[in-house]
Amino acid sequence: MASAIRRRAQETRWHTASQVLAWLRLHPGATRAALAHDLQLTSGLATELTGRLRALSLLAEAPAPPQGRGRPTTVLGAHPDGPVVLAVDLRTADRRHAVAGLDGRLFDTAGARHDSRDPAAVLAAARQAVDAVRDRYGDRLRAVAVSVAGTIHDGRLAQSATLGWRDVDLSPLTAGAGIPLLPGNDASLAGLAEARTGAAVGARAALHLMVEVGIGGAFTVDGRPSAGAHGAAGEYGHQPYGDRSRPCPCGARGCWDLEVDGRALARHLGVPAPADPRAFAVQVLDRAPRDPAARRALAVVAAALGAGIGGLVNVHDPDTVTLGGLAAPLRAAAPDSFAAAYRDGLMAFHRGQPPPVVDAAHGDDGALHGAALLALDHVTSETALAEWSARPH
């Protein structure tokens, strides 16, 4: 009982520090005065807090670039000896990973194509990256977050129609390493990144959609995505917005997935379904300026994308819609077709002032940024900060 009381007292002590570090992720390179203003801290308390965090290698202060006359000031950033996290993005054809410090900035980014789609082989290759980062950073590596194109439930990949995986245990990524593993859906994590640090900053309710192989997304409120009861929220690609006679690998029929990616483009062009729908879509986009058939196919797909987004706006009523992955170039390839279908898909209530549809700020790195933010939320919790402070410095 006494130890539990002491632990709770320690965690309470770290509550404000956790808020400071969460603020830092949203404002890397800002000043201590801005921190005090935004968190409504006295200058004395801000000085005391930042000093304590510096002593624990959680925060660094560096001279700000000179801006004319006036008192020199400092800017806040991640400590060079502080905690780091590893973000891993397992995509359909390849994998990518990056390290992030407490300010959320990605570095040491690397990746490779899959030698095999077999889950054990993919996870074994990704585990080598985890081990390499652990060897480099030691116990400064405090969490690994993995982004996967599929439904996550109870820490497992329940289903990925694009990878062809079902009920895959992701724990081998960190098994025996003593590092927490935090899995998430790729589109949901990209939506988290756009809401926190991307194109949807300032929007209370935001809808993010990402086309890769199929389409997924996330609806965020106050920077937090809805996961649903079983982790399947955001599986927008499996809404029945397509041809009901067409079966989807997910097990349903008529899925929107089949209308908005490289498989749809191949169908409209009268060629066989591609082995790599994303790469095929990129090829069609590249040749569109000189290929009328490609432009016609892209117009049909852009219209299917716009119409479905209109339906989702009717469901969620977002302030902003952000487009990631191939969704942005697909719209750009046929903007009139997209705009007409989007408008026609909206209820009259929304047509007077429809939510703006904007390109994602993080581009292809959205899932990596989101995975890093997920991991950093974990390592800057009161409990994790208390654990970090107890280690030898």
Rank of each mutant, 00 (worst) to 15 (best):
A218D: 01
H316E: 05
A36T: 04
A229V: 14
G306L: 04
H238T: 02
G223S: 04
L157P: 08
R278P: 01
L45G: 05
V301L: 04
V321L: 05
L192I: 01
A372C: 09
Y137Q: 12
A158S: 13
A206M: 03
A302K: 06
I179V: 15
S245Y: 00
C255F: 00
A17E: 11
A129L: 03
V85H: 06
P329I: 03
A87R: 05
L323A: 13
R6T: 15
G198F: 10
Q40W: 02
G234Y: 02
P355M: 10
A78H: 05
R91S: 14
G306E: 05
R244K: 01
A232F: 06
D317Q: 12
D186G: 10
S245G: 10
H238L: 00
M210Y: 01
R127L: 09
P329R: 02
G214R: 03
P392A: 11
L58H: 06
L258H: 07
A264V: 05
A252D: 12
D103M: 01
D359R: 13
A334M: 01
F349I: 14
P172H: 01
L141W: 07
A299P: 12
T162R: 11
P355V: 11
E382Y: 00
A34F: 02
D131T: 14
L323W: 09
L346M: 12
R6V: 11
A384R: 05
L181R: 05
A60E: 13
A60Q: 12
A372N: 11
C255N: 06
A195S: 15
L76S: 12
R95Q: 15
A55Q: 13
S147V: 01
V321T: 08
R13V: 10
R296V: 09
G234K: 03
L21V: 05
D261A: 13
A36W: 00
A187D: 04
A361I: 07
G310P: 13
A120S: 15
T16A: 11
V130I: 12
R13M: 11
V168L: 01
S389Y: 00
G104A: 01
D81E: 14
L182D: 06
T322G: 04
L373S: 12
V20C: 08
A161Y: 00
V211P: 04
G352A: 15
R8N: 10
A294S: 11
R105D: 13
A288T: 10
G77M: 06
R95F: 13
A307K: 08
Q239I: 12
A177M: 12
R263V: 14
H316D: 02
L21M: 05
T16G: 08
G242M: 04
P318Q: 02
